[in-house]
């Protein structure tokens, strides 16, 4: 049972969380091509490396971002979704 560190609530067992998928930046729907949009909507990158993932702390209703290395399943850091997460 992994421990995940919620930026608001601190380290908690993983059952307290809901996984929200990969963090992706929303393309501008006015300018994006059909193919690019389809790529955004349907394709998920599963290659080994550091992943940015959405996680949600169920009891407090907190969304945040976790950076996880899927080769070691190590969570490198967690932080609230803010300017940092969007523009990195």
């Amino acid at each position: 049972m992994k421990i995940l560190n919620c930026p608001i609530n601190g380290p908690r067992p993983i059952q307290e969380f809901h996984y929200g998928g990969e963090v992706r930046s929303l393309p501008d729907s006015a300018t994006v091509t059909d193919a690019e949009w389809a790529d955004y909507v349907f394709h998920r990158a599963g290659e080994p490396g550091v992943k940015r993932e959405w996680w949600y702390h169920l009891a407090s209703g907190t969304w945040f971002v976790a950076e996880r290395d899927n080769r070691s399943d190590e969570i490198l850091r967690t932080y609230l979704y803010a300017a940092e997460a969007r523009h990195e």
């Binding site: 609530n9 908690r12 067992p13 059952q15 307290e16 702390h57 169920l58 009891a59 407090s60």
Partner: peptide
């Protein structure tokens, strides 16, 4: 509850799950 309740700070709230229910 999956938290170490002996070590919690008195009069400080935690949001967690008790018997599978989200609780304060």
């Amino acid at each position: 509850c999956g938290l170490d309740c002996c070590k919690l700070e008195v009069n400080r709230l935690v949001m967690t799950r008790v018997a599978g229910v989200s609780c304060m």
